[in-house]
């Protein structure tokens, strides 16, 4: 190899090292995906509260409370002496059906229910489109519900097809009917961590698993 080639190689190695430093420092775009009312916004709030001291999304028992993408930038998380920066992306719940009449039982006016249903349909479309803009994903499932729902399978299938790292969060473990084992048996090829975002239960274990999947 001549001297000019060696110099070129050296330069590229140097450039690669510089880039790897930036890559190490890059902010990870962490999407929170899942079906409606699984607790995505509660988990986003818990993470934001733990590391920034403030919540990021409104939560409610009424379905489709989150109807647009919410992003919290530069959330620096520490776990086991390591530190990573995340952009938290809270997404609307994925659904295959939306009926405005379902909102009427929450004492909403017909006009308000129709507006909410319309926004919810747009929110689902937006959430699916945002799959292109995430580096890794927390699939948040309600551990009291049947995990074999097609929406869950579709979300996880799409993430697998895009090679996006996934951590399944079995939420609501504070409830009596919670069944983390059932979630684990539904998705045996994925890491599942049981938490209660609302009560802050097992969040340390959650951060540890999160660091494992983004490594």
């Amino acid at each position: 190899m001549d001297k000019a080639s060696k110099n070129t190689m050296g330069f590229f190695d140097y450039l690669k090292n510089i880039l790897s430093i930036f890559q190490f420092k890059k902010t990870i775009r962490l999407g929170l995906y899942g079906p409606v009312n699984a607790g995505k916004s509660s988990l986003a709030n818990r993470i934001s509260l733990d590391w920034l001291g403030e919540e990021m999304s409104a939560v409610s028992k009424i379905p489709h409370e989150t109807r647009e993408i919410k992003v919290k930038e530069k959330v620096r998380i520490n776990s086991n002496g390591k530190e990573l920066d995340f952009n938290l992306i809270d997404t609307p719940g994925i659904a295959t059906k939306i009926d405005f009449e379902d909102f009427l039982k929450y004492k909403m006016s017909k006009k308000e229910a129709k507006r909410r249903a319309k926004e919810a349909t747009q929110g689902v479309i937006e959430a699916i489109k945002w799959l292109e803009n995430v580096d890794c994903v927390l699939v948040v499932l309600d551990s009291t519900e049947n995990p074999y729902d097609q929406v869950n399978v579709t979300i996880i299938g799409n993430l697998a097809a895009r090679d996006i790292p996934v951590l399944i969060v079995a939420n609501k473990v504070d409830l009596r009917r919670a069944n983390v084992k059932r979630v684990e048996s539904a998705f045996p090829q994925y890491k599942v961590i049981g938490v209660s975002a609302l009560k802050g239960k097992n969040m340390e274990g959650f951060y540890k698993e999160l660091f494992d999947i983004v490594r």
Binding site: I94, A95, T96, V124, I125, I128, K129, L131, Q150, V151, V153, T154, G157, N158, A160, A161
Partner: peptide, 11 residues
């Protein structure tokens, strides 16, 4: 359907 088609179906 493929996962991508399922996502398209939902959209």
């Amino acid at each position: 359907f493929s996962p991508e088609e399922e996502a398209l179906l939902i959209e």
